[in-house]
């Protein structure tokens, strides 16, 4: 059940990305293009997701523990540090340039568009590089 729940969650997530249009980079870029071929669809993706997660998370938190874990692993940071703002800024530029964010890019791998096959390895390198810098900064403190 533990494995199955994770597999199904991944499958539903990927299906949602495809159905919604998030896995189509040109649709993402059109959403971000107010002064051109604007397609507002993706606002509804975020809206639809939050309509489910907001009450869903609230209900889940009424339980003391999740089914297959001892504790809820929730982010505890509340401060706005440089890393958060710089990271979000850089992420947004990349998202605008390619029309891909991590979930849709990975979901698109089996479709094997050449652009995806360039994007995903570059994304993994970027992630590893960011992990490396955070390890170094932690050591220097």
């Amino acid at each position: 059940m533990r494995i199955l729940s994770t597999l199904i969650a991944g499958l539903i997530f990927g299906t949602g990305l495809i159905l919604s249009g998030m896995a189509n980079p040109i649709k993402v870029q059109n959403f971000l293009d107010f002064f051109g071929s604007w397609d507002p669809s993706l606002a509804l993706v975020m809206g639809g997701a939050i309509l489910v997660t907001m009450p869903g998370f609230w209900l889940v938190q009424k339980r003391k523990t999740p089914f297959f874990n001892n504790v809820f692993h929730l982010p505890t940071k509340t401060d706005f540090d440089f890393r958060l703002l710089a990271g979000a800024t850089i992420f947004g530029v990349g998202w605008g340039l390619g029309g891909f964010c991590p979930g849709p890019a990975v979901t698109s791998l089996p479709l094997a568009a050449k652009g995806t096959l360039v994007f995903v390895p570059a994304m993994l390198i970027g992630m590893a590089a960011a992990k490396l810098t955070s390890l170094k900064s932690r050591r220097s403190i």
Partner: peptide
């Protein structure tokens, strides 16, 4: 389809939260 797809994404997030707390 975008609203429905979004709801599926949200549903998946709730599954991960209730089963693994993640």
């Amino acid at each position: 389809t975008s609203l429905t797809g979004g709801a599926l994404i949200g549903f998946s997030a709730v599954i991960l939260m209730i089963s693994h707390g993640r």
